[in-house]
């Protein structure tokens, strides 16, 4: 098993540091899957059974690394799966924003490590200094790989583009102090409503004129009493109740320079948030709906 990769350009390095820091905010531990063309960061909840992971992030290597070599265990198992404490990785990569280059490799230094060699410029002269971080990792045995397969999600009823994440985050952060759950309601007309209900108040924030990517209506509302706006066609609205904290956590990804974020809702069951960048990084977050 061998892995070695080199990053030379400053903007992908900054982006990579941002991705890793976002992931460290979302979870304590993550799985880093290395394959010949992509890097995957996978976060799955403990004991969540067959449910999809919470986070699935794909980073195409070609746009980030100038050099990339990987050799798996054998020809059938070309990938490498590593268990890693995400905070360790993000703390080691903090300096990446000013670095000249990053060399990543898999080493065995008394325990398996992901060695990060960062070449930092020195402020005083043209000199540079080499910083080496040995981040301990766990090599995931092949029999457990199946647990980290790409999630198969049901076809969403609606996919709608999200407004600016920063704006959304301030809204959600206010809401989550009042209620632990938030209802996301999206209509085929491009309206997104965030709503919380407490004993004392009902708060909704509406975003209008959002682009609807796909709609698989009509939605069956027969089993629930649904409240909607007057003159709104109920069958063109779907909603899902989710944990406000989990939703807000995903929104901290706003430090990644993304070009669009899509929110897909499977009526009452699942919310999938997918952030895509120009470099084709895909960060997907799966939040299961809360049903009473």
């Amino acid at each position: 098993m061998k892995f070695r990769a080199v990053m030379m350009d400053s903007s992908p390095m900054r982006e990579f540091a941002n991705i890793v820091s976002t992931i460290s905010k979302l979870s304590k531990e993550c799985i880093l899957r290395l394959s010949s063309d992509q890097l995957y960061f996978i976060v799955s909840e403990e004991n969540n059974g067959p449910a999809p992971p919470i986070l699935w992030c794909e980073v195409p290597q070609a746009l980030f690394f100038s050099e990339y070599q990987i050799v798996g265990v054998d020809d059938e198992h070309k990938d490498i799966y590593l268990g890693i404490i995400s905070a360790n990785l993000s703390k080691s990569l903090v300096t990446l924003k000013t670095a000249k280059s990053l060399k990543m490799k898999l080493t065995k230094k008394q325990c398996p490590c992901l060695t990060l060699e960062i070449d930092l410029p020195s402020i005083t002269m043209q000199q540079s200094r080499l910083v080496t971080h040995d981040v301990p990792v766990i090599v995931i045995p092949r029999k457990l790989w199946t647990e980290f397969h790409e999630p198969r999600v049901p076809r969403p009823d609606i996919s709608i583009e999200l407004p600016s994440l920063k704006q959304l985050r301030t809204t959600i952060d206010r809401m989550k102090t009042m209620s632990p759950e938030v209802v996301l309601r999206a209509s085929a007309e491009g309206r997104l409503t965030l709503q919380i209900k407490t004993d004392l108040a009902k708060v909704s924030t509406r975003f209008r004129d959002l682009r609807v990517e796909a709609f698989e209506g009509p939605i069956d509302h027969s089993d629930s009493e649904s409240e909607s706006q007057i003159n709104e066609d109920v069958s063109r609205v779907c909603y899902c109740r989710v944990d406000a904290k989990k939703f807000s956590m995903f929104l901290s990804a706003d430090n990644i320079s993304h070009n669009r974020t899509i929110c897909s809702i499977v009526h009452k069951k699942l919310v999938t948030l997918c952030l895509q960048t120009e470099e084709n990084v895909k960060l997907q977050c799966f939040i299961t709906g809360i049903v009473y």
Binding site: R129, L130, H133, P136
Partner: peptide, 16 residues
């Protein structure tokens, strides 16, 4: 426990 800590090493050239 070596599996818990990050080992960091910095080499600085004397000229700095």
């Amino acid at each position: 426990d070596l599996t818990k800590v990050i080992r960091t090493q910095i080499s600085i050239k004397p000229i700095e």
